[in-house]
């Protein structure tokens, strides 16, 4: 088999908002800072981060739907070519699709059937939409319902249906599971897994690490607007194979792994000026943590931490149960 192509590659992405701060004072608010990641064909990559860390902005940046006062630097490549405004307008809705967060992204005054078909009325589209509904266990007459008549779980499946009407090569799922109980959430994620197994790249954006670990191939740990680590799912089976202190803290906070917490809260994206965003809460902070830190490869994954040494592949002086 030939090597899987890289569908999406994001390099050193930063997003800055220009705001008016009373009167004519303009301020710059940096929400995403130096973010890099890749998604390959047939692969599901989960971006996991707390609310307010800038995850949804990442999706909007790829889709080219950032608000007018946002400016972007860095590079987004789709199929190894730059994804500029012209190309994204050509591909979005067809090859690149977004499965948005909530029912509010559906038109409340339009029956879901026509929304799935994007208004097309020909026989082929009708047949296709029926088979898509059937694939997700929805009855054919679901297409005659309006969004307000759908339950939470049905809404999710309708949103996914809109995505798979064409043959997408890249699917971005923004928080597809909140409000669903565990079984339903797993079912929704298994649909995305299927899409990936059929050859598309899937970028899953979520706050739920435990769920992401069940379906994804790789996990990108997101904190205060940047990625601190990229790890394989298997790295999360034990604390020692994780690379960044924040990922390790997440591991220890799981109810099954001790339920340990770390004091403090995630800083506002704008507050982090330079260096590691986690430095204020980390037990191992030193002066160098506040300077620029390279994103380097360690044991097949990536990490942004000065204590991480690519030679020995482990964190210095960080045994199990550090930082308590």
């Amino acid at each position: 088999m030939e090597e899987n192509r890289t569908v999406l590659s994001i390099e050193h992405l930063s997003i800055i908002f220009t705001q008016y701060d009373g009167g004519f004072e303009q301020t710059q608010l940096r929400t995403i800072k130096d973010l890099s990641l890749t998604v390959k064909e047939g692969e599901m990559v989960a971006v996991v981060g707390a609310s307010g860390s800038g995850k949804s902005l990442l999706a909007h940046a790829v889709m080219g739907i950032l608000p007018y006062n946002a400016s972007m630097s860095g590079e987004i490549l789709y199929m190894e070519e730059e994804l500029n405004q012209k190309r994204i307008e050509k591909f979005r809705g067809r090859e690149i699709v977004l499965v948005p967060q909530s029912v509010s992204y559906l038109d409340p005054l339009m029956k879901v059937g026509s929304q799935i078909r994007k208004g097309k009325k020909d026989e082929a589209s009708k047949r296709k939409s029926h088979s898509v509904l059937k694939r997700y266990g929805l009855k054919e007459d679901t297409e005659n319902l309006y969004p307000f008549q759908l339950s939470g779980g049905m809404t999710r499946r309708i949103l996914i249906s809109t995505a798979v009407m064409e043959q997408p090569k890249l699917v971005i799922a923004d928080e597809p599971t909140p409000g669903l109980h565990l079984e339903a959430a797993k079912r929704v994620l298994s649909h995305f897994r299927e899409i990936a197994d059929e050859g598309a790249g899937v970028l899953l954006i979520t706050h739920d690490l435990e769920l992401a670990l069940e379906v994804a191939d790789r996990i990108v740990v997101f904190y205060a607007g940047t990625n601190v680590e990229e790890a394989f799912v298997s790295d999360f089976y034990q604390e020692e194979t994780l690379r960044h202190p924040y990922s390790r803290a997440l591991y220890r906070a799981m109810p099954d792994h001790g339920f340990h917490s770390v004091p403090g809260t995630q800083p506002f994206a704008g507050q982090v000026t330079s260096g590691c965003p986690y430095a204020a809460r980390c037990a191992y902070t030193e002066d160098a943590c506040y300077r620029d830190i390279p994103y380097q490869e360690v044991r097949g994954g990536m990490v942004r931490c000065i204590r991480m040494d690519s030679d020995n592949g482990g964190l210095h002086d960080m045994g199990k149960g550090d930082g308590k």
Partner: peptide, 11 residues
């Protein structure tokens, strides 16, 4: 705590 990250949950 369903919408919170694990560390905030446990805090």
């Amino acid at each position: 705590t369903t919408m919170l990250d694990l560390i905030t949950q446990s805090q």
